[in-house]
Amino acid sequence: MDSIIFDLDGTLWDATDNVLVVWNQVLSNKKEIRRLLNIEELQGTMGLQIKEIGQKLFPYLEEKVQEEIMNECCQVECEFLGNQGGNLYDKLEDTLKALSEKYKLYIVSNCQEGYIEAFYQYHQLGKYFRDYENPGRTGLSKGENIKLIMDRNNLKNPVYVGDTEGDRKGAQVAGIPFVFAKYGFGQVSQFDYSIDKFEDLLKLF
């Protein structure tokens, strides 16, 4: 193994409390929104791309309106998280530091452009990662973005760490092993390895 590619939400941090606050601030000013969101609804969208989130949360709205609302939510979200951050999982930085001394580290998340940058900005963790990608920049699926990172960085034997079925499928598309983060938001049908907490990666690798 030469590298580890990480999902972000439910794997490196949990930003849902802060995201819920700013999204509901946006939604409260939209007359077409029937009600505000709760934390369970937001957590249920983890791993989806932005368009899919809009369809799941606001099925009663036209696609164009879904897109407009999601774009505004995402813009406000990135600004807020860049200044306030999210909840990092226990011993995250210590574990990343140790892993980065042995492996090349990357992030591939199904987020909008600016979201990973906000994670880096507030928590100052960008120094541990060599590259990152998301559909907000490429328009590609998770599996395609994983392959893009692999090709761009000449990775020969990476693994992908994530917490949802979408993460598992992305690793499968890329043809690499999947490590299931059991502490995250989702459930998966199968996996190659699993961890109960983030620091377990040090025992696994």
Results as ranks from 00 to 15, higher is better:
E144L: 09
R130I: 10
I39S: 09
K91L: 14
L37T: 12
G85A: 07
L125I: 15
G82H: 03
V65R: 15
L42A: 11
D17K: 15
L42T: 07
Q55N: 12
I5H: 01
F205P: 03
M70F: 03
E79I: 09
D17C: 06
V26S: 00
V21Y: 04
S189M: 04
K156F: 05
I176Q: 01
T95N: 07
K31F: 01
N154T: 07
C73N: 12
F129T: 08
L20P: 01
M46F: 06
N153M: 11
D192K: 08
S109C: 06
N157W: 01
G166R: 12
K127S: 14
V188Y: 03
Q66L: 07
E72G: 04
Y183P: 01
E199K: 14
V188M: 05
G114S: 11
T45A: 10
L27A: 09
R168H: 14
F58E: 08
E40Y: 06
G114E: 03
K102W: 03
G114C: 09
I50S: 12
I107K: 00
N38H: 07
M1R: 07
S189H: 05
L140Q: 13
Q124F: 02
G162M: 06
D131M: 03
E72T: 11
L105N: 02
D151G: 14
Y160H: 12
K127G: 11
D9Q: 03
Y115L: 11
E165Y: 06
Y120M: 14
D167V: 10
C111I: 13
T45N: 04
G175K: 05
H123Y: 07
Q84H: 15
E67P: 00
K147E: 12
V173K: 11
F180T: 12
K156I: 13
G143E: 00
L140Y: 09
W13M: 14
Y106C: 13
E63H: 10
